[in-house]
Design a binder for these strands. Structure first.
Lengths: 152, 152
DNA sequence: GCATTATCAGTGTAGTTACACGTAATGGAG
DNA sequence: CTCCATTACGTGTAACTACACTGATAATGC
């Protein structure tokens, strides 16, 4: 951990750089469907979770709630999702609109092709392990404390 | 790869979610120094590379060149970096300003503490492997083709 | 019932990110 | 020396991201 190679070893920098590169890659793959990787994720999650309150969606996706509010606005303006008040008057529930279903159907094969290329690039065996690492990093970020250093 | 758990297996989504979580974690750790993780990276890279043209910095950090232009503007307005024309009149070279040195010096211990927590959380042995995975993902994103599928 | 607390959501503000496009300077080919 | 491809850079536009703050509704305690 010499000061000279600080960023080369920074977990945060490397994770974010990898995420940027993958984001661009998936964005280009999904371009024919007219959506980016973030929107794809949002549409897919909405389809999976059915009518779902925004906060629950945010928790599920690991994004800030207010970020989701704005990201949903873009999809809503394109009629890809609908947002309606829930039974609890505080909540607003997100649903996949017909146009959103169509776009998602067009996007899934494009996503699958790109995903397959990545899995092949990493190698099938290593890919599962890679996904596990990403899950672990996410979990470490979510639970900031982990106060017991586990004598590591 | 059932359609139901599409995002759960998406390499892009998981990488970006992990990056978001780590970004927030490092942001909070660096807050006392008055900078975020992206700015920390930028300052550290500038110190390492000395007076450096923007494009070279962009290549080095894996960010878009135009993104760097704007991110540098923020640091420049805070007098953390200086930007001067290079010998080649097309280039503009970035240098770490005195204030930037001070901020960076204050930030490094904060960074190191957070970095250590992450390394401990992942486990020393696994951490190196994790970093390798992130490097690989970055590389896969950078070279989109990798045309030879290696019979995978 | 009423006050307090907790939950859900939006806005103001600001930083990060990248594509499409345009501009200026360099370096060769002729 | 001139023309042209290449290189380096900025701007317009738009999306993604999150914190601090605010308002509205629900749930709980008395």
């Amino acid at each position: 951990m010499k000061a000279e190679h600080l960023i080369r070893n920074c977990t945060c920098f490397n994770a974010r750089r990898a995420a940027r590169a993958l984001g661009q890659l998936y964005d280009r793959a999904l371009a024919p469907a007219g959506i980016g990787n973030a929107q794809f994720t949002l549409l897919a999650a909405t389809r999976e979770l059915g009518p779902v309150p925004i906060s629950r969606l945010a928790t599920h996706l690991g994004t800030d709630r207010t970020t989701l509010t704005r990201n949903l606005r873009v999809l809503r303006e394109r009629s890809l999702v609908t947002i309606a008040p829930g039974r609890d008057a505080r909540t607003r529930e997100v649903s996949l609109a017909p146009d959103g279903e169509a776009v998602l159907e067009a996007a899934v094969p494009l996503w699958r092709a790109q995903q397959t290329r990545i899995v092949a690039g990493v190698g099938h065996a290593d890919w599962a392990a890679t996904l596990d690492r990403l899950h672990l990093l996410h979990r470490l970020g979510e639970s900031p404390a982990t106060t017991e250093d586990a004598t590591a």
